[in-house]
């Protein structure tokens, strides 16, 4: 599949993960989110940006348990829990947020 952003076609795999990580941009993230049925809010951006920073530092998208713990450490316990993250990303925070963040599917996701 593919996304259209500013007249450019961005290729993605059959599940909607973009193929070339360098293609990512904030407008693209908004478009991927829309395709997922999500309207990006500052809370969504906070998680997406966190994932991008994590990927830049460690070269992997974290598994959900790791993401929850790391977000709790950085943004506080009211955000570092499954309920908060699933409210934002109903189809799974690691999976759906990673897709919006332009990252590969997290390792440990089957």
């Amino acid at each position: 599949m593919a996304y259209e952003v500013d007249g450019k076609t961005i290729t993605a795999d059959e599940e909607g993960y973009i193929v070339n990580l360098a293609d990512w941009s904030e407008p693209l993230a908004t478009i991927i989110a829309k395709a997922e049925g999500l309207e990006m809010t500052s809370n969504h951006w906070e998680v997406v940006n966190f994932l991008r920073e994590y990927y830049n530092e460690f070269q992997i998208a974290p598994a959900i348990r790791v993401l929850t713990k790391a977000i709790g450490k950085k943004l506080g316990p009211d955000k570092g829990n499954n309920k908060y993250l699933y409210d934002l990303f109903p189809y799974g925070p690691a999976k759906q947020a990673c897709k919006i963040a332009g990252l590969p599917k997290p390792t440990g996701c089957i």
Binding site: E57, F58, Q59, I60, P62, A63, V66, K69, A70
Partner: peptide, 14 residues
């Protein structure tokens, strides 16, 4: 090749 060395530093998170 992709540099996967930084991933060893994520092991602690796991």
């Amino acid at each position: 090749m992709k540099n996967f060395s930084p991933t060893y530093r994520a092991l602690e998170d796991y």
